[in-house]
Write a protein that binds this DNA or RNA. Structure first.
Lengths: 328, 328
DNA sequence: CTGAAAGCGCTAACAT
DNA sequence: ATGTTAGCGCTTTCAG
């Protein structure tokens, strides 16, 4: 592989000049530029990012931490991140934490190792203090899931409000017994959505018991299916609507309803959250809360890059939208 | 951020010694090792991968080229790649080519730029000659999709055989009119699966016409749905089974059957290919061909790393499996 | 077992 | 406008 030295020699100029045609072409005569470019062409030269990175002490790499890539919700965000990062000349390192602190720590180390210039995290399972401390040293933006700490930046939606509105929608449809299929409450969004759910019930003066909430361990189709199976066997006939805090769970639950021959929406209404692509492919199509996932990823990158450049940034709360379809 | 110099100074040793405790601890006295490690601890030192990479002229990064990450098939392969790469101390750069040659070229340049030590490609849209030439310079492994060229390595399954077996299964079930929903034939797998499909029909002496094949432009749910919509409006009643060359297409098609009230499998049988997780969540569950996606990704990494080390490798063809479920 | 020093490929003062 | 040179942080001979 040819180096900048080889090019310089072949073009009969100094390495500095070669570097200039690469980085500030305007600072070089048309003629010498041509010479250098010809030499590059001939040698099939491509600058070593390794050398450049070391010299500039930057990696032009962004760390993206997600719980699991198989969750389509994160996938769409990652697409937004990738596209925008690319536009800014950054590549991304997508890492799955599996919601484990150890894993997360390992990945955050990539910042210390200068392998990434900043990080977007969607899964702050890590203890808050550690995260705050890390954020003091490195540019970090929290996306979707976040810790409320003034020293931490985030972009998200108002989960509480969205859940409140969706629950209210169900209540207005006449449902009086609504079950919430929630994920682990270590997630802020789980706590927020539960809060919104409660607020709506309270407003409609529906009395409420703890066993109306089913907690899942994983956010997977199977977990949703299992949840519904359990609910149908223990509380059949005692509820007419289900609010799953994630589409993935809702789709699993819907599958179980289909399997057991429970008609949706006549016998049971079901709603999800996120509006992943797949909610359009279920039968019937799923009512859900649309999150602007792509945009969220895209803005997260904008924020992060500003931070890397040392600019000040403000937190962002994006709008959501209720998508009413045939499952209600 | 502290450098190796800082550690050396604090520990009262040379940078070489610090480097040794990092890389060949056995070459250092227990006592000095302890001194150095204490210094590292105190400074919260982490070696700069940038410096190391430049010196070792390696990036410990693997390039992974896929058409679209939103296709769950690739997703699962990527999971296999990630896990295995990590085990070997490599990180991965997942890049979406969107099946465009320009994009692909841009990403392959990352090899020239030393940003990646090798590549796993699942979408050789690039012209073959270019790929062959590239593979002479850099370690490259083709995964799933490939070009048949002795100078190129690949890991895949026998698509032709799988399609043949699946078609035969449908024929044995008594179906005489089977439609193939195929993707763009620029993909080898599309051509291979069509070949297998044909072979089975021939064997059963079923006469065949070109309009039994529906070609989609995208491999998306929507494309599958659109395909079935078109088929039902043009050829309703003229076919009793559908073979989609990808689960994603099959799921879209199944959705349309559900929507139009066509009962599956009584009125129409439908099968897919890949066995993505979601085929378990459709109603009814989809009959499909299981590909060992995770394993494929995992082995692809093993092959690639061997190549990077300069070892010889052989091509691999993994086993597939027919998964018979309720959609047939 | 440890240290001195060269050098990986590049960029950016600084000098001309 | 171009060249010279130092140095980014690390690993690895080569001496001692």
């Amino acid at each position: 592989m040819p180096t900048i030295q080889d090019v310089a020699k072949k073009a009969g100029v100094s390495v500095a000049t070669v570097s200039r045609v690469l980085n500030t072409p305007s600072a070089v005569t048309e003629k010498t530029r041509q010479k250098v470019q010809d030499a590059m062409q001939e040698l099939d030269y491509a600058p070593s990012i390794l050398g450049r990175n070391l010299r500039n002490s930057e990696s032009r790499m962004l760390l993206v931490l997600i719980p699991k890539i198989s969750n389509p919700f994160y996938l769409r965000i990652v697409e937004g991140i990738e596209e925008t990062a690319l536009d800014h000349g950054y590549n991304i390192l997508v890492c799955q934490t599996h919601s484990k602190t150890e894993r997360e720590s390992v990945y955050f180390d990539l910042l210390k190792n200068r392998l990434a210039d900043g990080a977007i995290t969607m899964d702050p399972t890590i203890d808050k203090d550690k995260l705050v401390q890390l954020a003091r040293q490195f540019p970090i933006v929290q996306c979707s899931e976040y810790d409320k700490d003034k020293s931490l930046s985030y972009i998200t939606i108002d989960s509480e409000l969205a859940a409140y509105q969706m629950t209210k929608f169900l209540l207005k449809q006449g449902h009086k017994r609504i079950v919430l299929i929630n994920s682990d409450e270590k997630f802020l969004y789980a706590r927020e959505r539960k809060k919104g759910f409660h607020r709506a019930l309270k407003e409609f003066e529906i009395e409420f018991e703890d066993d109306w909430i089913y907690k899942t361990n994983d956010v997977t189709f199977e977990a949703g299916q299992q949840a519904m199976r359990s609910l149908l066997s223990h509380k059949a006939g005692k509820f007419t609507a289900v609010f799953a805090v994630s589409d993935v769970l809702a789709i699993g639950a819907l599958k179980e309803l289909n399997t057991q021959g429970v008609h949706v929406p006549d016998e049971m209404a079901i709603v999800g959250f996120d509006k992943i692509d797949f909610t359009n492919m279920t039968f019937p199509r799923l009512t859900t809360v649309a999150q602007p996932m792509y945009k969220m990823g895209s803005i997260a990158v904008d924020m992060l890059i500003k931070k890397i450049r040392g600019e000040e940034i403000e937190d962002v709360i994006l709008d959501h939208e209720l998508i009413i379809r045939e499952s209600t």
